[in-house]
Design a protein around this nucleic acid. Structure first.
Lengths: 199, 199
DNA sequence: GTCTATACGAAGATAGAC
DNA sequence: GTCTATCTTCGTATAGAC
C-alpha cells in the first residue's frame, strides 16, 4: 500500500526513473513560471529552459494543459505544508494570499488555468479545479462550522454558503490586486472576518 | 457634438459604412460567443461564422485580443440599460449575475479576457479591465456610501473596501458556478447583503 | 475604404528513427 | 526515453483588387 498519491495529474511512467525525471521537470518548470508569468510559456520555451525538446515534455505529459495543471498542483503541494488545524478559515486564506503575493507568476498560472477550465466542456483543467474548489470549500466550511460552534462566527448563515463566499472573495481580490497592486490584498481579506463576526 | 463615444475600443473606419459594418461584426460575434463559448473561437472561425475572411476582421480590429475586448464591451453595453440609481450595490450585482446566468458564453469570455489581462504586462485587455474594475468599484462604493448614510449598511468598514469585496464575491462566485452549477449564484450573492447589515 | 488572397512564423501535437 | 521531422492551426502582416 505505497501508492504515493502525490499527484493524480498526468499519469505516465510509473517506474522509478520516470517518476524522478517527472519531478525534475516539474521543479524546473515551477521556477520558469515563477520568473516569467504564465505568458510566453509555450511548450517549446519551457522545454528550452529545462534543456530538453518539447517532444520530451509531451512524453511525460499528454498535453500542455496537463503539464500546466501538474505544475500548479506540484507547486501548491510544496507550500501547503502549513496545515495548522486550529487556524480560522479567514486566516488560512490570508496566509495563502500572502504567499501568493510573493509569486505573481503562480497567481497568473492559477487564473489562466481557471479560465481554461471554464472554457472547455471537458478537460484536465476542468476536472482538477472542480475537484479543487470542492476540497477548498469543504475545508473552509469545516473550519467555519467550528468557529460557529465556538461563537466566533455568526451562525445565521450556513457555513457552506459562507465558505463559498470566502473562497470567492479570496480569488476575486487576488485578481483585482494583480490588475491594480494598490489594492491591499491582505488587509481587505482580513477585514472580511469582521463581516463574519457574530451579531 | 455628436462624437458617439460608443466604444473606445478598436478605433478604425470613422465613415458611415465602416461604423455600421463594425457594429454588424460585433453583433454577430456576440451571437457566436453566446452559442459556443470563448473556446474554439479563433479569428478564422469567428470570421467564418460571420461570413467574411479573417483578414477582414483585422481590418476593423488591430488584433484578436482587441476584437474580443470589443465584443465583451459591446455586449455589456447592450445589457446595462438598467441603470436604476436607487438600487442597492448588492442588487446591482445580483441583477448582473442573473443576466449572466443566461449567457454562460459571455462569462467565459469575461474570464478568458481577465486572465489575458493578468498575463500580459501591457495590452488591450489589461487597460480595459483595469479601468473597468475601477469604474465598477467606484460605482459600487458610491451606492454603498449612500446606504451607509441611510443606515442600511454597516459603516465601521470603509465603503471602498466593501466595494472591492462585493466585486470580488460576485466574480468569484460566477467562476465557482461555471465549474459547479449546483452553486446557487443568485441566492449566495443575495445573502452577502446580510453580511453588510448594520450591527 | 473595404475586402480578399496569400505568406510567414510560432504554436500544440504526432510519427517514427535512434 | 529522447530526439528530429512533420502536420495542422493559429495570429499577424502585406499586397493588391474593387
Amino acid at each position: 500500500m505505497d501508492s504515493d498519491p502525490e499527484s493524480v495529474i498526468g499519469r505516465r511512467g510509473s517506474y522509478a526513473k520516470g517518476v524522478a525525471r517527472r519531478k525534475e521537470i516539474l521543479d524546473r518548470a515551477i521556477e520558469v513560471f515563477a520568473e516569467r508569468g504564465a505568458d510566453g510559456t509555450s511548450l517549446r520555451r519551457i522545454a528550452e529552459a529545462i534543456g530538453v525538446s518539447h517532444a520530451t515534455l509531451l512524453h511525460y505529459f499528454d498535453s500542455r494543459e496537463q503539464l500546466l495543471v501538474a505544475v500548479y498542483d506540484h507547486a501548491e503541494q510544496l507550500r501547503s505544508v502549513t496545515d495548522d488545524p486550529g487556524a480560522s478559515a479567514v486566516e488560512v486564506m490570508v496566509d495563502a494570499a500572502t504567499r501568493n503575493v510573493g509569486v505573481p507568476g503562480m497567481v497568473q498560472l492559477y487564473s489562466t488555468l481557471v479560465a481554461t477550465a471554464i472554457e472547455e466542456p471537458a478537460g484536465e483543467a476542468k476536472d482538477f479545479f472542480t475537484r479543487r474548489f470542492d476540497v477548498v470549500r469543504a475545508e473552509s466550511a469545516r473550519r467555519l462550522r467550528e468557529e460557529q460552534a465556538a461563537g466566533r462566527v455568526r451562525d445565521d448563515i450556513d457555513a457552506d454558503t459562507l465558505a463559498a463566499m470566502l473562497v470567492a472573495v479570496s480569488d476575486g481580490l487576488q485578481t483585482q490586486w494583480l490588475l491594480d497592486p494598490a489594492i491591499d490584498l491582505r488587509e481587505t481579506l482580513s477585514l472580511f472576518s469582521a463581516l463574519l463576526a457574530p451579531r
